[in-house]
Design a protein around this nucleic acid. Sequence first.
DNA 1: ACCTGAACACCGTTCAAGT
DNA 2: ACCTGAACACCGTTCAAGT
Lengths: 262, 262
Amino acid sequence: MATRTRRSQRRTEALSRERIVEAAIELLDAAGEGGLTFRALSERLATGPGAIYWHVENKGELLDAVTDAVVADAVAGGAVSGAAGAGEAGGEASEATGAVGALGAGGLPGAARDGIRAVALGLFDAIEEHPWLATQLATQLSRSPWGTVAPRLFESIGRQVRALGVPQDSWFTATSALMHYILGAAGQNAANSASSRALPPDVDRDQFLDTVSTAWEELDPDEYPFTRSLAPQLRGHDDREQFLAGITLILAGITVVHPPAG
Amino acid sequence: MATRTRRSQRRTEALSRERIVEAAIELLDAAGEGGLTFRALSERLATGPGAIYWHVENKGELLDAVTDAVVADAVAGGAVSGAAGAGEAGGEASEATGAVGALGAGGLPGAARDGIRAVALGLFDAIEEHPWLATQLATQLSRSPWGTVAPRLFESIGRQVRALGVPQDSWFTATSALMHYILGAAGQNAANSASSRALPPDVDRDQFLDTVSTAWEELDPDEYPFTRSLAPQLRGHDDREQFLAGITLILAGITVVHPPAG
DNA sequence: ACCTGAACACCGTTCAAGT
DNA sequence: ACCTGAACACCGTTCAAGT
């Protein structure tokens, strides 16, 4: 949320790493991965391409910084205020499990479950707002799990896993499963919001799902019987609801396979 | 497996889409994502850069074709012969759940579970053999879920989900959860095998895990208490075992939340 | 200490010209 | 129908030179 501050750079303040990261996010949001260029960036910042290299090692490091900034924002918001930034798109899907207890009370499994949903939705929303984030996260996590992003995600998800009462020697497994699902599913869902952003969201969405659904229906019946049978289900579905249903699934698995030590 | 056929191109046969894809995979395997260049590719194929454009629309389409070819190979091998292409790296981790039933008998939940593990390991191995595949899959899935790769994955995973007896209206949720976990976890695990491939695999691995583990131990105790506590667990762990433990988790969740109808 | 901007090496892509 | 290879526009990065 603390992302969009300055509109069009007016070379008033000095260049800084923060301002560079901020401008880079704006470029990525506006024009996608291909939109981030040192030339475009320096133009936006009213400077030369070389100037950026004083504050940033290279493009890879810039992308790391940008990803880290957005993720930090997302998990912070999610952990504190619940489903932060959810906007009007949602719907109530958290009843899918039969919601247990209210948020705020510490230590109870129900609160932990809600906490996990909050973190998950925080990332879900961040990826929806910044569609380039999905690919960037995959790249960075598979390239350097020792970076700053992986610990951030592990920490925010893992604390809730711990609060769930999962025995310690299963923390890694449980946290990893949640993290991978969240990133993968959120990325998948970002596909449509990525295409066009200005149109009325529901029209756009339905059209998109209809296209995919139709494409699936036209697959070879011998090679893709299962996928074809999934097409109608795809047409009607609600992204958020599906996403949370997956979370519920994994939470149930965690509870069954790694019941609270007692 | 049907991947490495020709070693050094000898301009004997005519150019073809297949030979281009094949050479592209070799370049990606040898030098990573940055290694795939139309100039390097045309040199390897003993032709000019322009020639490639007769068979392939552009670089994006080439990457799609390459990804599709490798995935097709992976899921085909996984579905037919179990953990195909596992090589000598593995270890027996499938006992983690207490293996149920033998592969080959159709329709039983135990066989379906083994089938899912086989598909999962097929993708796991493919990503380990071609580390660039993880990022490429994330990119492609989040960009075009109507492409050829998504249906391929859905189909091979979903058939096993159906065989598990999951009721139809939960197929999408269950299959998605498995798919996202598989891709995410396999990608994460590819990080180390990506770094250096020629060295003795175990030495390399231990060194890598040690580095990450140490980095985690040095995190701020106030901000990252959970992640720090995970460090020792990281040091000893076995990639394959962890991966399969996650699969077990999700399978359990599926069975609990969506029990077989009837 | 921080910024400028020309220059370098390299990239994806195009296209007139060949066979 | 298929290939050649020079050319174009663009990119990340460097670095001598400025302040």
